[in-house]
Design a protein around this nucleic acid. Structure first.
Length: 425
RNA sequence: GGAGGUUUGGCAGAGUGGUCGAAUGCGGCGGUCUUGAAAACCGUUGUACCGAAAGGUACCGGGGGUUCGAAUCCCUCAGCCUCCGCCA
């Protein structure tokens, strides 16, 4: 959520930046918000005054009772009753204003960073780098959804029988490859200074709200209604919520966390081309990296995280490209996002395997995640960042496709000590 | 799932209706003393909102209620602890 002070101090800048994110009616929204903000402050002043009167007189009543002066005390009670009627009205007023203000603020997306390219569609994303070479496949090369059947690595039909479509069943070397990738990614993150966590896979409403899944993306999460818990769509939610309502010491920054979790996404309404096989699932595995940073360092940290993910792809020998997302394609909560896509040679398609974002203070504001500035002694909202490092299913898809040979599918060198085998045949 | 207990500031721990935002201790920060450190002593030490400031308001697990007045009484929800049941 944007900070009200930012809006108050520089409304025209906010409107301009919201425009860069293709947010309609930014000017109207900001006008409404400023009006509500002014109302809120005026009403609060009145409320504070009224409460002060209540307190002062109540103290007097206490003293009068001690002196045994019942009659005068009763007179004052009448006065307080009138004040209390006023307080009740002001409170109701205040509640409604705050509700409206909150409803408006929650609808504002984060402001995009200056370097974010303008645009509305994925075509407007900027390719900032392309790396690695696309392999030349043999004549009988197949897309991964055929390979997994040929080598009995994944069975979608049985997954569908057990649960439903989009819940694959990994088998034998297919399952071991998943496990190997998870361990590889976690070890790499630990080596880069991240602390490993194994968080809960269901979260409560407050957590989902704090990282921005609620209220915007309600329908995209699985909801366990009996207990009002949500299945996590990404480890970002539990990992970032570790630091909800926390005030860090400045020297505790940066905080670097990593964790593996399965991720659950309803992906309501998305079917068809580009969703075959492992390309798009309701459940997939992912290792996430999260950083909590001083505002001065967050963009440098973003570049480091990008490099970390690039390093993983390089070690796996996968051709990839880095996109800087345009305003229209970025997530609601992000200020700057890099997407990393690998080229899956048999389906001749770029697959998004990672998204690395700086949220600046947008999440921290909802989380109430701050640090105490050693100089000014003030509590300042921290910057939060996260990235996939990496999402497994699509990595598996491209590994299988790109590394297939007439004799089997080869395992990248870096992964072999984790898999315990070097070929799937 | 059943029964009981508990939830107060960074931590420990008082407070059971009237200057309580909250005693005291520990910890933290600043200072005196010291060659330096420790000890001792003195001071200071929660968060948020409104306000130019003075100052004001809210917060004692969350929400609601009673009262002129609630950390304190009532209702309700949640967390933690103990015992029982069930169970990987």
């Amino acid at each position: 959520m944007l900070e009200i002070t930012t809006i108050r101090q520089n409304p025209s800048h906010v409107i301009e930046r919201l425009g860069a994110k293709n947010f309609d009616k930014a000017a109207q929204a900001i006008t409404d918000i400023l009006a509500l903000d002014a109302q809120r402050r005026a009403v609060q002043q009145q409320l504070d005054d009224a409460r002060n009167q209540n307190k002062t007189i109540s103290e007097q009543i206490g003293k009068l009772y001690k002196q045994g002066n019942q009659q005068q005390a009763n007179e004052l009670k009448q006065q307080v009753n009138t004040i209390n009627d006023n307080i009740r009205q002001l409170e109701a007023n205040m509640g409604s204003i705050e509700q409206q203000l909150d409803a408006q603020l929650v609808q504002l997306p984060n402001l995009p960073h200056q370097s974010v390219p303008l645009g509305k569609h994925p075509d407007d994303n900027q390719v900032v780098k392309t790396s690695g070479t696309v392999p030349t496949l043999h004549p009988n090369a197949k897309p991964h959804w055929d390979l997994v059947t040929q080598y009995n690595l994944v069975n979608f039909e049985i997954g569908a029988k057990i649960t439903g479509s989009g819940f694959p069943l990994y088998i034998g070397k297919g399952a071991r490859l998943q496990r190997a990738l998870i361990n590889f990614f976690l070890d790499e993150a630990i080596a880069a200074g991240y602390t490993e966590y194994l968080p809960p896979h269901l979260v409560n409403e407050a957590s989902a709200y704090a990282t921005g899944q609620l209220p915007d993306k309600e329908g995209q999460m699985y909801h366990a209604t009996a207990d009002n818990l949500y299945l996590i769509p990404t480890a970002e939610v539990p990992l970032t919520n570790i630091y909800r309502d926390v005030i860090l010491k400045q020297d505790e920054l940066p905080v670097k966390l990593t964790g593996y979790t399965p991720c659950f996404r309803r992906e309501a309404g998305s079917h068809g081309i580009g969703t075959r096989g492992l390309n798009r699932l309701h459940q997939f595995d992912k290792v996430e990296i999260v950083q909590i940073q001083h505002p001065d360092n967050s963009y440098q940290a973003l570049e480091e995280m990008l490099q970390h993910v690039e390093g993983l792809l390089t070690k796996l020998g996968l051709p990839y490209r880095v996109l800087r997302l345009c305003g229209g394609d970025m997530s609601f909560t992000s200020a700057l996002t890099y997407d990393l896509e690998v080229f899956s040679a048999a389906q001749q398609q770029w697959l998004e395997v990672s998204s690395v974002s700086n949220f600046e203070t947008y999440q921290a504001n909802r989380l109430k995640l701050r640090f105490r500035d050693t100089e000014t002694k003030k509590n300042i909202l921290a910057h939060t960042l996260n990235g996939s490092a990496l999402a497994l299913a699509r990595i598996v898809a491209s590994l299988l496709e790109n590394n297939q040979t007439p004799n089997g599918i080869t395992i990248p060198q870096a992964l072999q000590k984790y898999t315990g085998f070097d070929i799937i045949d």
